[in-house]
Protein backbone atom coordinates (compact mmCIF):
# COMPACT_ATOMS: atom_id res chain seq x y z
CA UNK A 1 0.00 0.00 0.00
CA UNK A 2 1.32 3.41 -0.89
CA UNK A 3 2.22 5.59 2.06
CA UNK A 4 0.32 8.43 0.44
CA UNK A 5 -2.93 6.62 1.24
CA UNK A 6 -2.25 6.91 4.96
CA UNK A 7 -2.57 10.25 6.65
CA UNK A 8 -1.12 10.92 10.08
CA UNK A 9 -4.42 11.88 11.67
CA UNK A 10 -6.78 10.49 14.29
CA UNK A 11 -9.27 9.16 11.78
CA UNK A 12 -6.64 7.15 9.90
CA UNK A 13 -5.21 5.76 13.14
CA UNK A 14 -8.71 4.76 14.30
CA UNK A 15 -9.31 2.98 10.99
CA UNK A 16 -5.99 1.17 11.27
CA UNK A 17 -6.99 0.12 14.79
CA UNK A 18 -10.11 -1.43 13.31
CA UNK A 19 -8.03 -3.28 10.73
CA UNK A 20 -5.84 -4.69 13.51
CA UNK A 21 -8.95 -5.78 15.43
CA UNK A 22 -10.28 -7.52 12.33
CA UNK A 23 -6.99 -9.30 11.70
CA UNK A 24 -6.73 -10.36 15.37
CA UNK A 25 -10.25 -11.72 15.29
CA UNK A 26 -9.91 -13.63 12.03
CA UNK A 27 -6.63 -15.17 13.21
CA UNK A 28 -8.67 -17.34 15.57
CA UNK A 29 -10.89 -18.67 12.75
CA UNK A 30 -10.16 -21.92 10.91
CA UNK A 31 -7.99 -21.16 7.81
CA UNK A 32 -10.68 -22.15 5.32
CA UNK A 33 -13.27 -19.96 7.05
CA UNK A 34 -10.78 -17.12 7.15
CA UNK A 35 -10.17 -17.39 3.41
CA UNK A 36 -13.91 -17.50 2.74
CA UNK A 37 -14.46 -14.51 4.98
CA UNK A 38 -11.87 -12.31 3.26
CA UNK A 39 -13.10 -13.39 -0.17
CA UNK A 40 -16.64 -12.47 0.84
CA UNK A 41 -15.40 -9.19 2.25
CA UNK A 42 -13.50 -8.32 -0.94
CA UNK A 43 -16.50 -9.08 -3.11
CA UNK A 44 -18.90 -7.35 -0.79
CA UNK A 45 -21.27 -5.10 -2.75
CA UNK A 46 -22.19 -1.69 -1.39
CA UNK A 47 -25.58 -3.05 -0.48
CA UNK A 48 -24.10 -5.99 1.43
CA UNK A 49 -21.71 -3.66 3.25
CA UNK A 50 -24.61 -1.54 4.35
CA UNK A 51 -26.37 -4.63 5.69
CA UNK A 52 -23.30 -5.62 7.75
CA UNK A 53 -22.78 -2.12 9.11
CA UNK A 54 -26.42 -1.77 10.11
CA UNK A 55 -26.47 -5.19 11.81
CA UNK A 56 -23.28 -4.42 13.77
CA UNK A 57 -25.07 -1.30 14.93
CA UNK A 58 -27.90 -3.51 16.18
CA UNK A 59 -25.46 -5.80 18.06
CA UNK A 60 -23.59 -2.91 19.64
CA UNK A 61 -26.76 -1.28 20.89
CA UNK A 62 -27.01 -2.15 24.61
CA UNK A 63 -30.82 -2.00 24.40
CA UNK A 64 -31.06 -4.66 21.72
CA UNK A 65 -32.98 -7.75 22.86
CA UNK A 66 -31.31 -11.15 22.76
CA UNK A 67 -33.50 -12.47 19.96
CA UNK A 68 -32.80 -9.40 17.86
CA UNK A 69 -29.05 -9.79 18.39
CA UNK A 70 -29.35 -13.37 17.26
CA UNK A 71 -31.10 -12.33 14.06
CA UNK A 72 -28.41 -9.70 13.41
CA UNK A 73 -25.67 -12.30 13.86
CA UNK A 74 -27.40 -14.66 11.45
CA UNK A 75 -27.68 -11.91 8.85
CA UNK A 76 -23.99 -10.99 9.16
CA UNK A 77 -23.01 -14.65 9.01
CA UNK A 78 -25.02 -15.17 5.85
CA UNK A 79 -23.63 -12.03 4.21
CA UNK A 80 -20.00 -12.79 4.99
CA UNK A 81 -20.11 -16.56 4.52
CA UNK A 82 -19.56 -17.27 8.19
CA UNK A 83 -21.50 -19.91 10.01
CA UNK A 84 -23.67 -18.63 12.81
CA UNK A 85 -21.78 -20.43 15.59
CA UNK A 86 -18.44 -18.99 14.45
CA UNK A 87 -19.82 -15.49 14.50
CA UNK A 88 -21.22 -16.07 17.96
CA UNK A 89 -18.19 -17.75 19.45
CA UNK A 90 -15.41 -15.76 17.90
CA UNK A 91 -16.69 -12.45 16.78
CA UNK A 92 -19.75 -11.09 18.38
CA UNK A 93 -18.18 -10.29 21.70
CA UNK A 94 -15.17 -8.52 20.20
CA UNK A 95 -17.36 -6.53 17.84
CA UNK A 96 -19.75 -5.64 20.61
CA UNK A 97 -17.12 -4.77 23.17
CA UNK A 98 -14.72 -2.48 21.43
CA UNK A 99 -12.53 -5.28 20.12
CA UNK A 100 -11.38 -6.29 23.60
CA UNK A 101 -9.50 -9.54 23.23
CA UNK A 102 -9.71 -11.68 26.29
CA UNK A 103 -10.29 -14.90 24.38
CA UNK A 104 -9.88 -18.10 26.29
CA UNK A 105 -10.14 -16.67 29.80
CA UNK A 106 -12.25 -18.27 32.48
CA UNK A 107 -13.96 -14.91 32.84
CA UNK A 108 -15.02 -14.98 29.20
CA UNK A 109 -16.43 -18.50 29.55
CA UNK A 110 -18.35 -17.40 32.65
CA UNK A 111 -19.88 -14.40 30.85
CA UNK A 112 -20.89 -16.64 27.97
CA UNK A 113 -22.52 -19.21 30.27
CA UNK A 114 -24.31 -16.56 32.29
CA UNK A 115 -25.69 -14.95 29.15
CA UNK A 116 -26.83 -18.31 27.81
CA UNK A 117 -28.58 -19.25 31.06
CA UNK A 118 -30.28 -15.88 31.33
CA UNK A 119 -31.51 -16.11 27.76
CA UNK A 120 -32.70 -19.70 28.19
CA UNK A 121 -34.68 -18.69 31.28
CA UNK A 122 -35.76 -15.36 29.77
CA UNK A 123 -34.39 -13.45 32.72
CA UNK A 124 -33.40 -9.82 32.18
CA UNK A 125 -30.33 -8.19 33.71
CA UNK A 126 -32.57 -6.20 36.05
CA UNK A 127 -34.40 -9.35 37.20
CA UNK A 128 -31.24 -11.29 37.99
CA UNK A 129 -29.81 -8.21 39.71
CA UNK A 130 -32.92 -7.99 41.90
CA UNK A 131 -32.72 -11.68 42.74
CA UNK A 132 -29.12 -11.54 43.97
CA UNK A 133 -29.24 -8.07 45.48
CA UNK A 134 -26.94 -6.16 43.18
CA UNK A 135 -27.38 -3.49 40.52
CA UNK A 136 -28.20 -4.01 36.84
CA UNK A 137 -25.00 -2.20 35.78
CA UNK A 138 -23.04 -4.71 37.88
CA UNK A 139 -24.61 -7.56 35.89
CA UNK A 140 -23.88 -5.73 32.66
CA UNK A 141 -20.23 -5.31 33.70
CA UNK A 142 -19.95 -9.05 34.34
CA UNK A 143 -21.56 -9.95 31.02
CA UNK A 144 -19.23 -7.57 29.21
CA UNK A 145 -16.19 -8.82 31.13
CA UNK A 146 -15.36 -5.48 32.66
CA UNK A 147 -15.59 -6.89 36.17
CA UNK A 148 -14.98 -10.34 37.60
CA UNK A 149 -17.59 -11.55 40.09
CA UNK A 150 -16.42 -12.66 43.51
CA UNK A 151 -17.10 -16.24 44.56
CA UNK A 152 -20.02 -15.22 46.75
CA UNK A 153 -21.65 -13.49 43.78
CA UNK A 154 -21.19 -16.57 41.61
CA UNK A 155 -22.85 -18.68 44.29
CA UNK A 156 -25.78 -16.24 44.46
CA UNK A 157 -26.12 -16.19 40.67
CA UNK A 158 -26.06 -19.99 40.59
CA UNK A 159 -28.81 -20.16 43.21
CA UNK A 160 -30.89 -17.62 41.31
CA UNK A 161 -30.50 -19.60 38.07
CA UNK A 162 -30.96 -22.95 39.80
CA UNK A 163 -27.61 -24.37 38.72
CA UNK A 164 -24.40 -25.30 40.54
CA UNK A 165 -21.75 -22.62 40.96
CA UNK A 166 -19.36 -24.78 38.91
CA UNK A 167 -21.81 -24.67 36.02
CA UNK A 168 -21.10 -20.96 35.87
CA UNK A 169 -17.39 -21.01 36.72
CA UNK A 170 -15.93 -24.54 36.72
CA UNK A 171 -12.56 -23.55 38.25
CA UNK A 172 -14.11 -21.96 41.32
CA UNK A 173 -10.83 -22.44 43.21
CA UNK A 174 -9.20 -19.94 40.86
CA UNK A 175 -11.90 -17.42 41.77
CA UNK A 176 -11.19 -17.96 45.47
CA UNK A 177 -7.50 -17.34 44.81
CA UNK A 178 -8.28 -14.17 42.86
CA UNK A 179 -10.54 -13.00 45.69
CA UNK A 180 -7.62 -13.55 48.07
CA UNK A 181 -5.36 -11.44 45.86
CA UNK A 182 -8.03 -8.74 45.74
CA UNK A 183 -8.31 -8.62 49.52
CA UNK A 184 -4.50 -8.42 49.81
CA UNK A 185 -4.57 -5.12 47.91
CA UNK A 186 -7.55 -3.69 49.76
CA UNK A 187 -7.07 -0.50 51.74
CA UNK A 188 -7.93 -0.33 55.44
CA UNK A 189 -6.97 -3.93 56.05
CA UNK A 190 -6.35 -4.29 59.80
CA UNK A 191 -3.09 -6.13 60.37
CA UNK A 192 -2.97 -9.17 62.59
CA UNK A 193 -0.79 -8.91 65.68
CA UNK A 194 1.85 -11.09 64.00
CA UNK A 195 1.94 -8.84 60.92
CA UNK A 196 2.10 -5.70 63.03
CA UNK A 197 4.88 -7.13 65.15
CA UNK A 198 6.96 -8.06 62.09
CA UNK A 199 6.43 -4.76 60.28
CA UNK A 200 7.03 -2.61 63.37
CA UNK A 201 10.29 -4.37 64.13
CA UNK A 202 12.61 -2.14 62.13
CA UNK A 203 15.66 -3.59 63.87
CA UNK A 204 15.34 -6.56 61.56
CA UNK A 205 15.63 -5.03 58.12
CA UNK A 206 16.05 -7.93 55.76
CA UNK A 207 17.26 -6.23 52.60
CA UNK A 208 17.20 -7.57 49.03
CA UNK A 209 19.88 -10.16 48.37
CA UNK A 210 19.87 -9.31 44.68
CA UNK A 211 20.70 -5.91 43.23
CA UNK A 212 17.49 -4.05 42.34
CA UNK A 213 17.70 -2.86 38.76
CA UNK A 214 15.08 -1.54 36.36
CA UNK A 215 14.86 -3.37 33.06
CA UNK A 216 15.21 -1.38 29.84
CA UNK A 217 11.81 0.00 28.85
CA UNK A 218 10.06 -0.77 25.61
CA UNK A 219 6.86 0.52 24.07
CA UNK A 220 4.01 -1.96 23.83
Amino acid sequence: MSATLLRDDAETIARLDSVVCLLEWTRSLPPSTRTRFFAALAECSDAAQQVVVSQIGVIKNPHTAAAERQRALTTIGDTLSLRLDEVEERGASSMAHGCQQKAGTQEEAFAHRLRQLMEARRISQQEIADRIGCSQPAISQMLNRHCRPQKRTIVKLAEALNVHARDLWPDIEAVEMLDAVGSFQQDDYVMSDAEAHALRDTTRRNRPKIQPQSLPPRRG
Binding site: K102, G104, Q106, E107, H146, R148, A174, L178, V181
Partner: peptide, 9 residues
Protein backbone atom coordinates in the same frame (compact mmCIF):
# COMPACT_ATOMS: atom_id res chain seq x y z
CA UNK B 1 -5.45 -17.82 38.79
CA UNK B 2 -2.18 -16.05 37.95
CA UNK B 3 -2.88 -16.52 34.25
CA UNK B 4 -6.48 -15.44 34.78
CA UNK B 5 -5.41 -12.30 36.68
CA UNK B 6 -3.36 -10.90 33.82
CA UNK B 7 -5.68 -12.05 31.03
CA UNK B 8 -8.98 -11.14 32.67
CA UNK B 9 -10.31 -7.96 34.27
Amino acid sequence: HVTEWIRGS
